[in-house]
């Protein structure tokens, strides 16, 4: 509050949207991150229209053009059966983003709801939810995915399940901590004395105060999930050929290093690019929201 009283009153009258936009545009990390993410998502959505050889996604074989270095015809070169790596990288990004959205689309809501319940109700609810969370947190997702793949079959759906089954725990921890802190604030007490329902307090009063934390965590997680997915594919537990996946491409290209470096390095850089984009965006959002928390 003392900080705030220094700000001139005129500045307070500017619209929220303008203030947010101003801070966002002054935050290079967030802007670059957002740009990368937007480029990746657009590229993934428009893959059939922007890639030069969409047919190379399948089991196409063109031995005359195999192991071509990057050129104007093949921007990222070609692989060991003569398919265009640029095309396959863009399609691979599609799979990576899909993976991230499916995993986080299930893990984030589950984790958030459990965190809210544990943080608000306390007692037995808290004890049960948080102990399960602690156990799940102790298992590394990659190991869990390996185990699931070993028991079931090594394919995309099983890997997704394995990752999602562990990923919610991080969100539960985060939301639990925030809820515990918000629960003691006066406006929650005010809502209770006003006769508001538990549902109202959880989802209308507490949840909006968690949104910024969820946004930051989710965008940082996108990068990590993509990395884990690529790692699984690299180990042969994820997407199966011929479907193009960045991890699989790196694994296959690795056999031809160092002569045909582009076959693994360029898809690898693509992984880095996407993951970096989400991480920068997440960090940028955190800076942005932190400023807001001060007010």
């Amino acid at each position: 509050m003392t900080q705030m009283s220094l700000a001139p009153p005129e500045a307070r009258r500017l619209s929220n949207a303008y203030q947010n936009w101003y801070r966002f545009s002054r935050n290079p990390t967030a802007v670059i991150g957002a740009a990368i993410v937007v480029v990746c998502i657009l590229a993934a959505l428009l893959a059939p229209f922007i890639t030069p050889y969409p047919e190379h996604v399948g089991a196409v074989v063109n031995f005359r053009a195999r192991h071509q270095p990057p050129s104007l015809t093949f921007w990222f070169g070609t692989d060991n059966v003569g398919r265009d790596i640029f095309t396959r990288t863009i399609y691979g990004m599609r799979i990576s983003l899909l993976l991230a959205f499916v995993v986080l689309g299930t893990a984030v809501p589950i984790g958030t709801i459990l965190g809210l319940l544990a943080g608000y109700f306390g007692g037995w609810t808290e004890a049960i939810i948080m102990r399960i969370t602690d156990i799940a947190l102790a298992l590394p997702p990659l190991v869990m995915a390996l185990a699931v793949a070993a028991v079931l079959s090594p394919d995309l759906v099983n890997s997704l399940l394995a990752i999602a089954a562990l990923w919610w725990t991080w969100h539960t921890r985060l939301i639990y901590a925030i809820t515990k802190q918000i629960r003691t604030q006066e406006f929650i007490e005010a809502a209770e004395t006003l006769g508001a329902s538990k549902f109202h307090i959880l989802f209308r009063e507490i949840l909006p105060n968690c949104v910024s934390a969820i946004a930051v965590k989710t965008s940082l997680d996108c990068g990590f999930v993509i990395l884990v997915g690529a790692s699984l594919s690299f180990l042969g537990l994820g997407i199966q050929p011929p479907t193009p996946d960045l991890g699989t491409m790196v694994a296959q290209g690795a056999g031809f290093l160092p002569d045909f470096w582009w076959e693994s390095v360029l898809p690898g850089l693509a992984i880095l690019f996407v993951a970096l984009g989400f991480n920068l965006l997440g960090d940028g959002l955190r800076d942005l929201f932190d400023v807001q928390e001060v007010r």
Binding site: Q185, E186, F187, A191, L194, G195, A196, S197, R204, P208
Partner: peptide
């Protein structure tokens, strides 16, 4: 006591005033 903390910072004035009506 403190109007700064007894109103939810993420909800509009209208939403806050409507809480008891809703309840």
């Amino acid at each position: 006591q403190n109007p700064g903390s007894s109103l939810n910072p993420r909800r509009t004035v209208g939403q806050s005033v409507a809480v008891p009506l809703d309840a």
